[in-house]
């Protein structure tokens, strides 16, 4: 009996181990390549450890990416905050203040998720320029807020659907109005929802490339554009883009490491019951 359990446990952990290796392989490749000398980087030896550690890749890449990093932080934090707050208010209305046609409006919102970004590049550019928002971060922030609304509204709507209507009713009988119900009752309950949507939005916005490159002037370029510049050109020393990639991924990675537990709790709270 005991040995049977052991075999089961061993195979269980072996499966997990194989999965972990599969998931970590690309990370290993990136780190190893980043630490090599440019001349040593060839395909047949791509798994080998570097002969000498070349830490210079990181400082060099960091020097080139620093302004982009700052831009990315401003962009991502503002756009994430904007789209989650608006999304939360929308979700509140869609779930607790349904009016005639609100379901249809909600459905129409959802379709906004399905627009491929490159499709609306030209009208978006023209609109932002007409609003005098081309070139700087505010225009890009606005764009990300708008196209983040469908998904944040969806998540918050589902999240609030599980707050019993009776709770809202009783608060209103106590004389609370639209906003005070939101501030006193709904908002405090929705912290896990904020974690989920912020994490999602943060990841999406941090990693978006096409709009970033089209809608901002050179001095306002976010990190993805800087990264593409590292990897562009006709002859590339791959250690630099790899080092840059690792640095570009670090902020989001840290959030996942520290907030991963809350992310799952938030998902749990948000989407189990429709």
């Amino acid at each position: 009996m005991k040995s049977k359990v052991n075999i089961k446990t061993v195979s269980y952990y072996a499966t997990l181990g194989i999965l972990v290796i599969f998931f970590l392989m690309p990370a290993y490749m990136a780190v190893v390549t980043a630490l090599k000398q440019p001349g040593d980087i060839t395909l047949p030896t791509s798994w080998d450890l570097p002969a000498t550690l070349n830490w210079a890749s990181f400082s060099e890449a960091f020097a080139m990416l620093r302004p982009n990093l700052v831009n990315s932080f401003i962009l991502t934090i503002c756009a994430t905050a904007g789209s989650t707050i608006l999304g939360s208010l929308n979700g509140y209305v869609f779930s607790k203040w349904k009016f005639k046609g609100s379901e249809i409006i909600f459905t129409l919102f959802l379709f906004g998720m399905f627009i491929p970004y490159q499709v609306i590049l030209i009208p978006l550019f023209q609109t932002l320029r007409a609003m005098n928002l081309y070139g700087g971060l505010p225009g890009l922030i606005l764009a990300h807020i708008v196209y983040g609304l469908p998904i944040t509204s969806l998540i918050f709507r589902n999240f609030y659907a599980q707050i019993p209507d009776s709770l809202i009713e009783s608060a209103r009988l106590d004389g609370a109005g639209f906003f005070s119900v939101y501030l006193k009752l709904v908002f405090p309950l929705s912290i896990p929802g904020f974690v989920v949507t912020s994490l999602w939005q943060f990841t999406q916005i941090w990693n978006e490339f096409l709009w970033a490159i089209t809608l901002t002037r050179h001095s306002e370029n976010p990190i993805t554009v800087g990264l593409a510049n590292l990897a562009g050109g006709q002859a590339v020393s791959w250690n630099l883009p790899m080092a840059g990639s690792i640095m570009a991924a670090l902020p989001v990675l840290c959030i996942y490491i520290f907030l991963g537990r809350y992310f799952i709790r938030g998902l749990l709270a948000g989407s189990v019951k429709e």
Binding site: M29, L43, S46, W206, N207, M242, S245, V252
Partner: peptide
């Protein structure tokens, strides 16, 4: 969970190396 945090440009570049026929 961590791959989700990566930009497609990053993961695309790394996977191209991983899947190169004479390497990876």
């Amino acid at each position: 969970l961590y791959p989700m945090s990566l930009s497609f440009i990053v993961s695309g570049t790394i996977w191209r190396w991983m899947l190169a026929p004479q390497g990876g």
